[in-house]
Simulated assay, not measured.
Amino acid sequence: MAAMESSIKANLVASVPDTSASQENMSQANWLLARGIKVKDRVRLAKLSHMRYQTPDLDALCDFMLNFGMVIAKRTENEVWFRGYGVDQYVYYATKGPKEFLGGVFAVDSKEEFEKALKVPGASRVQHLSEAPGGGQMVTIVDPDGFLFNVIFGQERREDASTAPAEKLRANYPNEKQRIRQFNRFEPGPAAVHKLGHFGYTTTRFEELLSFYTSHFNIVPTDLLYMENDGHRIDVTTFMHLDLGQSPTDHHSFFLGASQTGSHVHHCSFEVFDYDTQHLGHQWLASKGYRSVWGVGRHILGSQIFDYWWDPAGNMVEHYADGDLVNEDTPVGILPAGHESLAIWGPEVPLAFLQ
């Protein structure tokens, strides 16, 4: 039987206020208060800096990262630093050795905040990064699940950063034509990386890690996903941003997902310019024979266009574009967990991504 004309509605696309994006929410201030977090005692992280890994084959990693859209900032026999086109000296560091996750790195912008980080439980002695581009010093903190979490201070800003690798395209809509006598043209190649956007863990100690990071650092949930168990809600996933007051910051710089089978780093994600450069980058990586995990698609929480890949050592890395921005007035979204919360369009989520 043919569908009645009135029963089929066209899809709807809209940018909505953060206060109405979730059916249920609570203010960030009330969430912190309910958990008894002493805001002034937290280490104030200023930005996400770079990722650190140990990998068995630096040559294979270099080939992949160049095709992924990074540039080698410096390389020695046993170490390599990769940068994007933004202000960061590097966004990814790797040292040669058996596969190992060495943690994400956040930057602080004062000696006082760095000294506060030295007092966080699990903190190590200061490491001087004299060989790294931009220098600086770093403290590594072992969290309650054994993950390494790093804080850096004193790194010099890169002065030769570029604003964009491509021109901002003009779009022609049915009733709004911005591009007249101008034709869009594209050149194949990697999707140039701008900066590190986020990373996160799958953990068997979800609540403990949530408490640890939100108590010791200015990391707060943007969205909390829960499951029902005997009438009680149990938080199982959270996407978290840096609390920078009124200053806008990425929807999430850090995330946690609960697991009953084991703890491990899930993925790290790097921003690219726009959808077209991202999709061209997807085709480029595929043409080089690299293994896709999931993508291209559009997330619901965070709104990013996503594209996940395996690097040669089996670490998951992502390109993303067009993510949400939030600040201290953005309420914490509270919603049920489920596959349907992951993407609004794109391929079916693979099992490998959920593990």
Rank of each mutant, 00 (worst) to 15 (best):
L32W: 01
Q155C: 08
D18L: 13
D57I: 07
V120G: 00
R157E: 04
S269H: 09
A171Y: 09
D88M: 07
E318Q: 04
I334E: 02
G257I: 15
N67F: 05
K47Q: 07
F153I: 01
R158E: 06
H198E: 03
E228M: 15
L342C: 08
G289K: 06
V151S: 03
T95N: 13
R185Q: 12
Y93A: 03
N150V: 04
S247R: 13
I180N: 09
K9G: 13
K38T: 14
N11D: 13
M51I: 15
L351E: 14
E348C: 02
Y173Q: 10
I344R: 09
T19K: 13
V126E: 07
S6Y: 15
N184L: 15
E159S: 12
H198D: 07
G295N: 00
A29R: 09
K116T: 08
A107S: 12
V91C: 09
I219G: 01
H128C: 08
Y85P: 04
S130H: 06
R291W: 04
R181H: 14
T237K: 11
V193F: 06
I334V: 04
V108D: 00
L196K: 02
V126M: 00
V91R: 03
N315S: 15
L102I: 15
D41F: 05
P174V: 08
T261W: 04
S269C: 14
Q127P: 00
I180F: 10
H266S: 11
L45Q: 00
S247W: 08
S22K: 07
L351W: 07
A123P: 03
A2F: 12
V87L: 01
T55Y: 02
G323A: 01
S27A: 05
L242N: 02
W345E: 10
A60T: 13
F101A: 06
P121W: 07
E167R: 15
P336L: 10
R75E: 15
C268M: 14
G136H: 01
G245K: 05
R158C: 06
D88C: 04
P165W: 04
H279G: 07
A34R: 14
H128T: 15
G262F: 10
P144F: 10
F273V: 05
H232G: 09
G281H: 05
F186Y: 14
A313Y: 02
H264W: 04
F68R: 01
I234P: 08
L342G: 02
R42D: 01
Q283D: 14
Y92P: 06
D63N: 14
E348K: 09
L32V: 10
H319T: 00
L325S: 11
V43W: 00
M4F: 11
E228K: 13
V236K: 08
F239H: 05
V16Q: 07
G84P: 06
P121H: 10
I180Q: 07
D250N: 09
G84W: 04
P188T: 11
E187A: 12
T55W: 05
I334C: 03
P144T: 13
F64Q: 00
S259N: 12
D88E: 14
T19C: 10
Y92T: 10
V13H: 12
A258D: 13
F353S: 03
S7V: 15
E271Y: 02
G281A: 08
P190Y: 06
G103C: 05
V71D: 08
Q182R: 12
W31F: 14
I72M: 13
L45A: 01
E176Q: 11
E115H: 07
G197K: 00
L256C: 06
E79P: 07
D276Q: 13
E187H: 11
T95S: 12
T238F: 08
M1L: 12
V139W: 00
D63G: 13
